[in-house]
Design a protein around this nucleic acid. Sequence first.
DNA 1: AATAAGTTTAACCGAATAGTCAAAAATAAA
DNA 2: TTTATTTTTGACTATTCGGTTAAACTTATT
Lengths: 208, 208
Amino acid sequence: MDKIQHTEEKILESARQIFHQKGFNGAKMQEIADLAGINKALLHYYFRNKESLFEKVFNETFSQMASKMSEIFLSEMTLMSKIGIFINFYLNFISRHSFVVQFIINALHDKPEQLREVILKQNLVPELLLEQIRKQLKEEMGLDIDPLHLYVNILGLVVFPVLAKPLLQSMFQIPDERMEVFFEQRKIIVPTFIENALNGYEKDKSLV
Amino acid sequence: MDKIQHTEEKILESARQIFHQKGFNGAKMQEIADLAGINKALLHYYFRNKESLFEKVFNETFSQMASKMSEIFLSEMTLMSKIGIFINFYLNFISRHSFVVQFIINALHDKPEQLREVILKQNLVPELLLEQIRKQLKEEMGLDIDPLHLYVNILGLVVFPVLAKPLLQSMFQIPDERMEVFFEQRKIIVPTFIENALNGYEKDKSLV
DNA sequence: AATAAGTTTAACCGAATAGTCAAAAATAAA
DNA sequence: TTTATTTTTGACTATTCGGTTAAACTTATT
């Protein structure tokens, strides 16, 4: 029957929206039900309780982000191309799903355990990703840099402004339109910034 | 009387701790009262309600962070010295108050309004800070770069890993001790990364 | 058409929680 | 010491919210 599928998908879609915006504590089961246009008891019929519904949404969301990341960084391209593509992709993605990053970070802050499970289930091997970056740093640029630092740098440059958007806007009184321009600009600025930074290291000399 | 001051300070200290770790929704008035070792009704005697207590904590916390930031960036030093000192200071501060950044970002995500008020009350003029950075970029390095982008880059490189700590740890199975080393390393790595990046731009050529 | 199985709902329950209030305890003022 | 004022408490209230249940409705099976 596809009534089931339909209802279930409607619920998940609403749950996604609410959980992403308000987190576990902020989200109310009644609100999710209302948004899905169904009775609250139906939520419990399809998903045992709030926690399991949340878990489902979290796993889904995280997988989506992480697998795209792996896909890009494990593909066959130069490291700099990957970085460029990654930044472009994420700035686009995030502008349409602005709450996702904060959602993941908050969820993990509350229950750090729940992650490893997803990673295994999805056959993601994050260590592979780092190894790949290390290899390319060495082979393409002659650099012995800890890939974790580079990886964190990339993420920080891309993700932080999205998280801090409300902070930046009220702090510097930036209107929405200028903020959009700002994010557009970052698609160019961030890759350049990273490339400059990497080119600045002395080649073939070991660093942290 | 300093019993008043004593009780009030005890309440604020507890409220700070709980709000920082759990945010507005996650924090419970009873828990704050327990931690302060007082009756719950006393909270309402000193601070009308949860919202006003939260507001007090938020304003305090934000002011502390922001004023230190202004102090550093408006002082008399080369831009690169400022950046180095800022990074060092914040990585130290944050390791002792690991929830503060997430607290501020989440609070602002929920109620973006409440910020401007604090900024004005504290006589912070964020625009001045940007102007100062622009001036030093031009004079000391011959660069016409939008200071907001540089500012966001600095913050992103410093703040993101702190926010993503649980994510990174479970993703890459990093034990606590290695994580401490990681943050120590960033005190060196991040300033170098930024310096390299800035040196990579063609001098006296206009950029975004 | 009759029956069984699956889906949806309205009404309800109990626990948690922000907030109140009147009385008790402590402190200051006379 | 007596009285007024401030601080603190225990008990209570109202409400919100996650979760349950039994009955109604819908769909599939025979």
